[in-house]
Amino acid sequence: MNPKRKQRLLIILGLVSGLGIAVGLVMYALSQNINLFFTPTQIAKGEAPSAQMIRVGGMVADGTVDRDPQSLKVAFDVTDFDHNVRVTYEGILPDLFREGQGVVVQGRIHSGQFVASEVLAKHDENYMPPEVTEALRQSGKLDQMMGGQK
């Protein structure tokens, strides 16, 4: 094998193995950093891990939003109309946050409460976060959404 061909072969091998290692590391980083999605029912059944960052989607249950009068602390229930999850959050809620609207919260379960680090509200009238739809579909309660309301 002449030196030129040898160099090319080495470069190609180097590139392929470099890319391979990189992709491997990337996949590892991915597996460490993804946020799994859970429905309120799954959380109520204890299927969600505590201490790990997860996402929960559903509707903000009517009449459950409590604000602390002194600070930006707020608590509300996220529901899939089967089960509710109590969410606490400190910070500014998004412009589209409202009772009865779809919401996705990201955070950790901490002694029975969901402590949110981020609250994402749905973006416009015609768009519902896919997670919310998924949660409502899984609970089969899209049709009964008004059922609990007085």
């Binding site: 768009y127 519902m128 896919p130 739809t133 579909r137 089969g140």
Partner: peptide, 14 residues
């Protein structure tokens, strides 16, 4: 995700 299957397919009208 935008093709939301309605949970009402096959169900009676509410």
């Amino acid at each position: 995700p935008n093709e939301q299957p309605s949970a009402l397919i096959g169900q009676p009208f509410p």
